[in-house]
Amino acid sequence: MNNILVAKEVTKKYGEHTALDEVSLNIPKNSIYGLLGPNGAGKTTLIRIINQITYPDKGEVYFDGEALQSHHVAQIGYLPEERGLYKSMKVGEQALYLAQLKGLDKAEAKKRLKFWFERLEIGDWWNKKIQELSKGMAQKIQFIVTVLHEPKLLIFDEPFSGFDPINANIIKDEILKLKEQGTSIIFSTHRMESVEELCEHIALIHRSKKVLDGKLSDIKRAYKNNVFRVGLQTANAELILSEITEKFKVSNSSFDSLENQLDFTLQLPDENSREVLAYLSDKANVNRFVETIPSTSEIFIRTVQSKELNA
């Protein structure tokens, strides 16, 4: 029971269009899970199935070990991509209403709201209407109503789109705190670099299918291919470069004659970097020797390309 959410071969069709094609996922407890993929890949459909806004045609979803049921909505917090609040309703009333819909009783909801309003320094907004607030302020409210009922699972669909950088950072910190407190979190986004640093696990969705999933560090390890970026301090760049080129695959070389700085990318034949490093430091002063780790979007593109080649 280490997974907060398990999806088994979930398929969903809209008429002729298949939105999800036998997607299976295991989302571990107390971690941040990235649901990545381009627009229209099926991420939002999957999230709506988890939120029971829509239902799968085939396959099963389990929440915390139980088959997904309507009472589970009280344990899920969802910040949709298309989000907003009632414009002409007062902030406090609105937050209370949404909290009560999630099953909180009024007194408890009020207490927690006071806490969150103080924490995000928005104490005096209670009687303001949303239309009187700036967009950033409204987003803080939106975040509070998402987490107020202390759900076990939080789902953020494109969480940082539309947030200004300051608020995005505040929200990011709050999300990390929630994770420390034991909440499981799903991030869904098409901008893969935006959540890369936060996610421990990811799943890549492409054209309604899951193409890759697992622990991010494992995936990266699997996808790194012994490429190193090297920097050498030498006046004799041409000679050294030609010597090295004879032994290794070199690319993207550049030489700064003022600084006597030679930079290039090196493809190693295997994982053994010690000998290479010894060889290089024999030639010149090594001031840079960094393994190039592929970014999530690189991994994504490579995966998709290889799948398409195989198909």
Partner: peptide, 14 residues
């Protein structure tokens, strides 16, 4: 109004 203010999906998740 609920559609244009985009609150609808927040509500129907509850």
């Amino acid at each position: 109004e609920e559609k244009t203010s985009r609150i609808i999906e927040v509500i129907i998740s509850s």
